[in-house]
Design a protein around this nucleic acid. Structure first.
Length: 418
RNA sequence: GGCCCCAUCGUCUAGUGGCCUAGGACAUCAGAUUCUCAUUCUGAGAACCGGGAUUCGAAUUCCCGUGGGGUCACCA
């Protein structure tokens, strides 16, 4: 359907670490470009020297790398200053712009309308030119403003679709007039509804809006994060929700973009992450946990102390109980940290009985262990949760007979010594 | 406040005039399975912002309200 070749871009400014809502925009640009066998471009918009944050650019790369949003071309605006200067001069010569206190200001037309058909909802958006004001295109420090630089770049880089947040709608008439001043066609403009926080305000750091890297560190899988982000304002056309990036590329259409703002729901992301964890093989899950463990410090890095076979068995037991990778540590803390469990007097009596009965076991199997546990339950008319407390410090957790079997008789009896 | 955008269960959404006594998912609640907790399975409650108009017929089209959001920088 698309005659021209599709070229999309994500144009972040290195003024901080983008949160998940911003990253979603990158995902859509990526999906759309790949869907049409087009080109996905990263352009760092670093024209604001005051708000520049050291290290932000590296974080940007880290995010895209982790999510697998590989870009085909890469630019940086601060390296293109002469280009903007040249174009500003051209407007100056044509008297379409004028000097103002060392800056250059663009003359906006004052009659008629500026309008375009937006890619979201395929609707006409129209502004009266009488409401528009002349605006700065080149600052007195020689750097261009966003409103100017991105237009020049989008044209020179032959961007076919500008897919960006809705916060740019109000300034779009400015952009369109710049295109006109140069007699350029403007790309197809697609303005995505903003992702909202729980209070229905634009998602921001104030909501504790996290970046993709925060989710990575919290034990989320990149596939789950991509999947959830995509669903925030886009629908594949049927009831499917769990999709790989490849499937999303296949199904992605601008028509599937919703025109209302979605609210970010951490609960659903968490559920989805659990789904992705359960889809993993034990080997895959194991290697992800090991990577995580190696990045950690302190108590949580103790994964390596245990025998690999034991770890794999624990992973198997933990898999259906994890919503994030980090949950593994909470589930196995009592083993990894060998922490002392505070017991009541009654629990101590039970522990002693357990010690006797388990010690008397000749075959150390799940079934045998379970029948011992059951007999202790009956004799003392207590619930299973009491035994979990005694062994793990928690009233519930990984299935006890299996865990005890995995750990071995010696260790278990040792842990019951008071 | 001016301008612009938006409006289906608590949340993400399906729905493009009759298939809607509005479907799915998360969350919530109840039940089944079970050594605890999960997983899995079954079920329940839960929505078309209001008012007009068009039409034989509107969640779906139009208008007016109301509500929410965005934007009004030598930031992006």
């Amino acid at each position: 359907m698309q005659l021209m070749s599709v070229r999309t871009r994500i144009a972040p400014s290195p003024t901080g670490i983008p949160h998940i809502g911003t990253t979603r925009t990158a995902l859509y640009n990526y999906l759309f470009a790949k869907k049409h066998h087009g080109t996905f471009i990263l352009r760092i918009e670093d024209t604001d020297r005051e708000r520049f944050v050291e290290g932000a650019e590296e974080k940007l790369y880290e995010i895209f790398t982790w999510l697998g949003l590989v870009f085909d071309e890469n630019y940086k605006q601060s390296e293109r200053l002469p280009i903007y200067k040249k174009h500003a001069d051209e407007l100056l010569e044509k008297d379409l712009a004028y000097e103002d206190n060392g800056a250059i200001r663009f003359r906006m037309p004052k009659d008629g309308k500026t309008e375009w058909t937006d890619g979201v909802g395929d609707k006409l958006i129209s502004f009266e030119n009488k409401d528009q004001e002349d605006f700065i295109i080149l600052k007195s420090d020689g750097y261009p403003t966003y409103n100017f630089a991105h237009v020049i770049d989008d044209h020179l880089m032959e961007i076919s679709h500008v897919i960006r947040g809705q916060e740019f709608i109000s300034s779009t008439p400015k952009h369109i007039q710049i295109y006109r001043a140069f007699s350029w066609e403007h790309p197809i403009l697609v303005h995505l509804p903003l992702v909202l926080g729980n209070d229905h305000q634009k998602l921001s750091k104030r909501h504790g809006a996290k970046s993709a890297l925060d989710y990575r560190d919290d034990g989320y899988l990149s596939d789950a994060v991509n999947n959830y982000m995509a669903l925030l304002g886009w629908n594949s056309g049927d009831d499917r929700e769990l999709m790989t990036v490849e499937e999303m590329i296949e199904l992605f259409e601008l028509e599937g973009l919703n025109s209302a703002s979605p609210v970010f729901d951490p609960k659903k992301l968490e559920w989805m992450n659990g789904e992705y964890i359960r889809q993993l093989s034990v080997d895959e899950l194991s290697s992800k946990l090991k990577v995580l463990a190696s990045q950690r410090s302190g108590q949580n890095s103790k994964l390596g102390d245990l025998d690999e076979k034991i770890v794999d068995k624990l992973i198997e037991l933990a898999q259906s109980r994890m919503k994030t990778l980090n949950d593994f540590y909470d589930l196995t803390k009592f083993i990894l940290e060998k922490s002392e469990v505070e017991l009541t007097d009654q629990e101590k009596i039970i522990a002693k009985k357990l010690l006797e009965k388990l010690g008397a076991l000749e075959t150390w199997t799940t079934d045998e262990i379970l029948s011992v546990l059951r007999s202790v339950l009956e004799e003392n008319s207590i619930k299973m949760s009491v035994l979990y407390k005694i062994f793990t410090g928690n009233p519930h957790g990984l299935p006890l007979p299996q865990v005890l079997e995995i750990l071995g008789k010696e260790k278990v009896l040792g842990s019951l010594q008071l």
